[in-house]
Design a protein around this nucleic acid. Structure first.
Lengths: 145, 145
DNA sequence: TATTGTTATACTCTATAACTATA
DNA sequence: TATAGTTATAGAGTATAACAATA
């Protein structure tokens, strides 16, 4: 493995870090769904993919501490977006799954996201979009590393 | 401009958003410099590039409200990393610039960042790194759009 | 004893509103 | 009047520590 690109990687990591923090701050405010925090949104996305999960599993997947996930799940339940059921085999655990309301809401948020996307599209050319599309799965992998 | 890629862009934005929020949370904790928040770090980076700036300019560049920047600058000053001087032409404004301590600290943080980078390098192959390097400037542009 | 989830509490970062000083 | 910066205050989101119930 050649180490030539190490310096370039360092520069890239530098740029990524500042861009990620800045984008994170801005995304917090440009929410596609008012009244739904980024992490709540992310949990719903995870449930849409996985079907259902225990609070502990969700905490691990979102890289959040268990007490934080307790709060997030409680908020989602209060909004009618998830359902909590007893675990069939282990009475300590619970099973969290999304409701039909959540599915409808995710569809609606997809629509709103496209509006925001149109704004961004004006600022980036096709070549830049191609780079973003290529990097998106890598960033996801990186986030979960 | 063909609209064929719009759906793909939406998917990419989706992935980017969740990756950005997740990475943001993790970066908050995996700080290259203990006792220096991501935004404080970012401000130092900006000052390193621009030489000096007023609190208002910094707030605009970091997309933070003026009172937040007041606090950040005060924290950096307390740590001896920036210097505040009166503006030569406008007595309402101030000029913020980095100290020699800050430069030394940035160098030290660069060293620590490479340690973290080595960890990441194990998880990504060269092709993935190439995609990240290509996307890094686009993400920065996006963050400032 | 170890593990899952919760409660209680505190901290960090940022925002909004109201104020001061200068232009 | 308008602008730069500050002070005071509040809110969102997360963490740690201590606890309950179950394994």
């Amino acid at each position: 493995m050649p180490d030539l690109s190490h310096g370039d990687n360092a520069a890239a990591v530098n740029a990524l870090r500042s861009a990620v923090m800045l984008l994170g701050r801005r995304l917090k405010h440009q929410r596609v769904d008012e009244s739904l925090s980024p992490t709540e949104m992310s949990v719903l996305g995870t449930l849409a993919r996985c079907g259902s999960a225990t609070p502990g599993e969700l905490a691990r997947k979102e890289h959040v501490q268990p007490p934080s996930m307790t709060r997030i799940v409680a908020l989602l339940e209060a909004k009618g977006l998830v359902r909590l059921e007893p675990h069939p085999e282990d009475r300590r655990q619970k099973v969290v799954s999304q409701t039909e309301t959540a599915e409808a809401m995710l569809e609606e948020s997809r629509r709103k996201r496209n509006v925001w996307l149109s704004h961004l599209a004006d600022g980036l050319d096709e070549d830049e979009w191609a780079k973003l599309r290529a990097a998106a799965p890598v960033l996801e992998k990186l986030a979960h590393l």
